[in-house]
Computed example of a mutant assay.
Amino acid sequence: MGGEESKPAAPSPFFSTAWRNIAWGDSGNQKALQYLKDYKPETGGQKLRILLHGPVGAGKSSFINSVQSVFKGKIYRRAGVDNMGADDSFTKKYTTYRVQKEGPKSSYPFVFNDIMGLEIKGVLVDDIKLALRGHVKNNYTFNPVSKLSEKDPFYNKSPTDNDKVHVLVCVVPANTVADIKHAVVQKIREIRMEASDLGIPQLAIITKIDEVCPEIKEDLKNVYRLKKVKATMEEFSVKVGIPMNCIFPVKNYHEEDNLNRDIDSLILSSMKGIIDAGNEFLDELCQCDSD
């Protein structure tokens, strides 16, 4: 007579080692933050324009607020955020956000543009294409049934290099990647094709990673050791075509009253990827202009 057969152990949710390494902690954060603060485009007066797009409720505005928080050293809430879980986009206008330096009238040489979500009642792909080319003026209110007309006062007929987009960033929540609507995926792919034609680099931010993995709530530094996080990123990569090394998982500041060094580490890592990609694009533009 033998005892009960022992059940096989559940597979571990972790890889044995992290599959991507970033510099965690205060020392790494200070180095990364200083790198971003020291960034300066080769062309004087040039601003690196970062356009965020994605589904409703993805965390685009929250990501902007999170970046601002890291740079300011305190929680920042300027970009409007909706917590109602509605299907309609809380962001209605084409809004530019600058990251202010310590001085009152000085800002870093990169800006964010936040736009309406990509749902059926959301922003039109044609309007995003116009924004990529610099034809959409700040504070334009998106119309989900009619694209911006050349006769509209918010249509920029003669965009400068500063008006054009230099980095396109798709923001998607981790907890919806598996169920992302086909129509939204098609919009993302169409926008990507237009950006590719213009040579604009494309990255992605996967938000709300703590909502799909309880191990992250225990320790955010588990992010690159968790099999589920990598699988979620891989699934999104396959759906929209953005390479894995251009996808960054983050946790935005949402309910926190104070900064968290591990949240900062992920925000800074994603921002370094965005700035580096955008700067390479600007360098290529400068070379083309000098030829």
Rank of each mutant, 00 (worst) to 15 (best):
K208Y: 01
A86F: 15
Y253M: 12
Q287W: 04
V238G: 09
K7F: 10
S149Y: 00
G59R: 01
S6W: 11
C170H: 13
I75F: 00
V125M: 08
S89N: 08
S290A: 14
F281H: 02
I247Y: 03
V67E: 09
E190G: 04
C288T: 08
W19P: 12
D152A: 02
A10V: 12
D257G: 10
E235V: 07
I242Q: 11
N245D: 13
K217I: 15
N175Y: 07
A23V: 05
E234I: 15
Q46F: 07
A23N: 14
K221P: 08
K31A: 09
Q186V: 07
E194G: 11
G117T: 05
G57D: 07
V99I: 11
Y39V: 02
S237W: 09
E280N: 15
P214A: 08
N138M: 12
S158L: 13
S16V: 02
T207L: 04
E42G: 01
K31R: 12
K157D: 07
K181A: 08
E4C: 12
V167H: 00
S237G: 04
T176P: 10
S269Q: 09
S149V: 10
Y35R: 14
P153M: 08
G54K: 04
A195E: 07
G134A: 00
L198S: 03
V111C: 06
G2N: 14
K60S: 09
V169I: 04
D210A: 01
G25R: 01
T43R: 00
H254C: 04
V145R: 10
I274D: 08
S16I: 10
I242V: 06
Y224N: 13
K147P: 10
I263D: 05
G57E: 04
G28Q: 03
A231F: 03
S158A: 15
L220S: 07
A178I: 13
A195F: 05
A277M: 13
M116C: 13
D197Y: 14
N175V: 05
D179M: 15
N260Q: 13
D264A: 06
D289W: 11
R133M: 03
G85I: 11
H135M: 08
N143S: 06
